[in-house]
Amino acid sequence: MPLIRKPSPAAPDAVPARDPLAALRDGSPDERFAAARAAGGLPGGVPALAGALSREADPRVREAILTSLSRAGTPEAVAAILPHVHADDANLRAGTLDALRVVPGGLGPHLPGLLADPDPDVRLLACDLARGLPAGEAVALLVPILDADAEANVCAAAVEVLAEIAGPDALPALEACARRFPGDPFLPFAVRIAAGRIGARTPAPDE
């Protein structure tokens, strides 16, 4: 029978032989990928990953760096990720927010800062991150966006999340938000849909 049971002697090893911190600097893309995965658990790994994230051009290696930093989850690791929410590269920006989404212990402490970021794109994506919080916390963070954010698109992102999780208490803020942008045809429409959805369901008990 041609099917073999014993491990193939030619089975290549997935573990890099080089020192990960060195490979992270000057390895091939595959070596840097492997090094990024190994570095998070090494002394000096988080600063090395932070530096690598700033210069890494290969999206696959960047993904591995972001995963290692988010797994580390230390304030130092989160601080290394946060600046990249402003990256010019949309893929890196989105990857950064995905990494923040899975930081152990949650994004809670960082979310108010992201929701107040000067960059409306960051605020918009942060609204979606709030969806992962318990409903009460998310509503408490998003209702002030409706009251104050200057960008209709950011408010619309908050409305979309609130449509799913908010109770009738949020209706006045939603309606006031629609009035803040009289020239925007989409926002009143989105608020109408959200209000209809919220009104159609029984309030959930506190989570």
């Binding site: 318990p134 409903a135 999780i165 369901r201 029984t202 309030p203 959930a204 008990p205 506190d206 989570e207």
Partner: peptide, 11 residues
């Protein structure tokens, strides 16, 4: 009731 079940699910 569904709202209570959905809250359990989200958590």
């Amino acid at each position: 009731a569904f709202p209570a079940y959905f809250a359990r699910l989200r958590a």
